[in-house]
C-alpha cells in the first residue's frame, strides 16, 4: 500500500502550464505559435477560408490538445489549469482566432466545466462567428444514470479531431464537419484501467492509492477513481476486460472494421502499450473484426497515471480515408 513520494521536473506548481506551453512552441516554431495571455496555441500560419477547429480543456492530458494543432487537425487549442476547463473568455478568444470566415467547430470533451465554458464562449462570440459544437462522450465506464452528466469524453477525442480536421482541410462546410464529428462520437467507445493513480504538479502524493493486488477499472483522465477495483492480472487478461465490453456496446460483429486507439495515460511505457496492442488485435481477430487502423501511444494522458485506455471506432471506407489524410502536428504526423 505504501506509495513512494513522487518527485517531478517542475519549477513552481503555478508556472507549470505556462512554461510547458512555452516549451512546446519553442520545440515546434515551424508549426505553432503561442498567445501566452489567453493560453492559446495556434498554427504559425493560420489557415484561410476553412472551418476552424478549436478544442481545449484542462491541462494534464498532453499531448492533447496543443500537440495536435497543425495542418489536418486543430487550428487552435486553449489550455486551462491542470484538470480545470479554461475560462469562457479564453475560449471566446480562441474561437475568434480560429475563425477564417467559414465558422468554427468546438470539439468539447463531456465535462460540466468544459461544456459550460465552451457554451458561454459560443454565446459571447455569436455576433462575430458561427459556432457549432461536437460533444465527445466515449467513456463506457460512465454510461449515463438518469439526470447525470453522461459519459465522459476521453481518447476518442483524437479520432474526432483527426477526422474533422481532414474534412475541414478538404473544404467541407461547418455543418458537414460537425455532423461527421458527431457521427464519429456515436461510433466510438473507450474503457481504461489503471495500475496506479497520478499526482498533481507540486503534490507528492497520488490522488488515490491502490493495494498491490488490485487495479482501478473504468478510470477517466483526471486521476479520479474508477467504477471499481478488480484483481491485478496479466496484460492479456486485463485487456480482455477492456475489449469485451467495447465490442458488446458497439454491437461489433464478424466482418466489421474498427480504428483502434491504444492510449497510455501518462507513465505507461511503449513496451507495455505494444503488448496491449497485440492483445487488442488478437481479441478482435478472434471475433472476425478487422482493425483497419491502429494508433498506439500516449495521446490523452492523466498526468503520470500508470494506465491505459482502449478506444474502438466503427470504421467505414470514408472514415479510414479521413484518418489517412495528411496531418502535420507536433504529436501526430503522416
Amino acid at each position: 500500500m505504501s506509495t513512494p513520494t513522487r518527485r517531478q521536473f517542475i519549477n513552481a506548481p503555478d508556472d507549470v502550464i505556462d512554461e510547458a506551453l512555452e516549451g512546446l512552441v519553442l520545440a515546434n516554431p515551424h508549426l505553432l505559435k503561442l498567445d501566452p495571455a489567453e493560453r492559446l496555441v495556434s498554427r504559425v500560419t493560420p489557415a484561410t477560408k476553412k472551418v476552424g477547429l478549436l478544442s481545449g480543456g484542462g491541462s494534464g492530458h498532453e499531448p492533447l490538445h496543443a500537440g495536435l494543432v497543425g495542418t489536418g487537425m486543430l487550428d487552435v487549442a486553449v489550455a486551462g489549469a491542470v484538470f480545470a476547463s479554461p475560462t469562457a473568455s479564453q475560449v471566446r478568444a480562441g474561437t475568434l482566432l480560429a475563425d477564417s470566415g467559414a465558422g468554427v467547430l468546438h470539439i468539447v470533451k463531456n465535462y460540466t466545466g468544459d461544456v459550460l465554458n465552451f457554451q458561454i464562449a459560443a454565446e459571447l462570440a455569436e455576433d462575430d462567428v458561427v459556432v457549432e459544437s461536437v460533444l465527445v462522450d466515449d467513456d463506457l465506464a460512465t454510461t449515463s444514470t438518469n439526470g447525470g452528466p453522461g459519459r465522459r469524453g476521453t481518447a476518442a477525442t483524437v479520432v474526432v479531431e483527426k477526422v474533422c480536421g481532414a474534412l475541414a482541410e478538404a473544404g467541407a462546410d461547418l455543418s458537414t464537419v460537425a455532423a461527421r464529428g458527431r457521427d464519429v462520437v456515436a461510433r466510438s467507445r473507450s474503457l481504461a484501467v489503471a495500475l496506479d493513480s497520478c499526482a498533481h504538479p507540486g503534490q507528492s502524493q497520488p490522488a488515490f492509492e491502490l493495494p498491490d493486488d488490485l487495479v482501478e477499472f473504468g478510470v477517466g483522465i483526471h486521476g479520479e477513481r474508477g467504477t471499481g477495483r478488480i484483481p491485478f492480472a496479466s496484460a492479456d487478461e486485463l485487456v480482455e476486460q477492456l475489449v469485451d465490453p467495447l465490442v458488446q456496446d458497439l454491437s461489433l460483429r464478424s466482418g466489421d472494421g474498427v480504428i483502434a486507439v491504444i492510449n497510455g495515460l501518462g507513465s505507461t511505457y511503449p513496451l507495455e502499450l505494444a503488448i496491449i496492442t497485440r492483445q487488442v488485435h488478437r481479441l478482435l481477430a478472434a471475433r472476425g473484426i478487422t482493425v483497419a487502423r491502429t494508433l498506439t501511444g500516449s495521446y490523452v494522458t492523466s498526468l503520470d497515471m500508470h494506465g491505459a485506455s482502449v478506444t474502438l471506432t466503427v470504421a467505414d471506407d470514408e472514415l479510414v480515408r479521413a484518418w489517412d489524410a495528411p496531418v502535420r502536428t507536433p504529436s501526430l504526423t503522416w
Binding site: G80, S85, T87, A88, L116, I120
Partner: peptide, 14 residues
C-alpha cells in the same frame, strides 16, 4: 468570474 475562474465553478458562480 467568467474571465478568471476556470472549470465548472467559473460559469456557475458567474
Amino acid at each position: 468570474l467568467l474571465t478568471s475562474l476556470g472549470g465548472a465553478p467559473g460559469p456557475l458562480y458567474s
